[in-house]
Amino acid sequence: MTAIEISDPGALTTVQDLGRPGHAHLGVPRSGALDQPALRLANRLVGNEEGLAGLETTLTGIRFRTRGATRLAVSGATCDVRVDGRAMPWGTPISVTDGSLVELGPVITGLRSYLAFAGGVDADPVLGSRSTDLLSGLGPTPLAVGDVLSLGTSYGDPVAAEAVPHPAAPVLRLDLGPRADWFTEAALASLDGSSYTVGAASNRIGLRLIGAALARNRDTELPTEPMVLGALQVPPSGQPVVFLHDHPTTGGYPVIGVVRSADLPVCAQARPGDLLTLRVVAPRRAEQGRQPRS
């Protein structure tokens, strides 16, 4: 059996695949890799199907030893990659022998690196996914020193070359709604082009944005509403939160807009202190009050 033994999981390393969508009506978050293009890329590099489970590291990297030979690739946040102390390329399939010490250093750009292994990480699936859901506790627990993860045995050939994307611009494009009408004209007017700082309390559940408060035009309470990935939810403080993959399936605060899925990797890779600019791409305000046909 091929496996890896964790020597140091860093600040937070979890098992992630593409998550478990389809169960939100039961209160189950979709979970899955925050930077899905990065996980898909790492899987392609080692010759896997794109949706196999890999590891998502946070800020400080990871250190582990192999049991059996395997092939791996690192994507997402850039970092130094070393095998038994020797520098190896990032974003390229790497063959490692039995008993190798693999180290991913602290991130250089971005926040979360993705590590795919030929055959994928073979944890027990829950509702069809091996993803760790930090909100509800489904899936494998975050990695700890001494954990042994077995790897799958079915995989294809590594790819010879792959275009590795440049880091995206620090911009979050928004579709307004469904509750943009809960906010003042001033808040809506200021939203497009405004910059927010990523808060330190950000995690896999939400990206906290600190900046100009978004004021509401009413004091009433919103009855609990279903929430989507990328929702920009505004609590009473007016400081918005972008809902990421482990977000609760329902919420009680109005959503002023939804971040385009193409920009979710920007959220995944934003570090506390980074500046992000909001860009309203689809006002759709004429559609907000659409009446049913009589």
Binding site: P21, G22, A24, H25, P223, E225, P226, T249, R290
Partner: peptide, 25 residues
């Protein structure tokens, strides 16, 4: 996804929500 809550029901994952919206109307 079809997700109910207190006063709303969410449809998610739609290929063309505009067309679905017209249909639902």
């Amino acid at each position: 996804e079809v997700v109910p809550a207190a006063r709303t029901v969410l449809l998610d994952g739609l290929a063309d929500p505009e067309a679905t919206s017209v249909l639902l109307a």
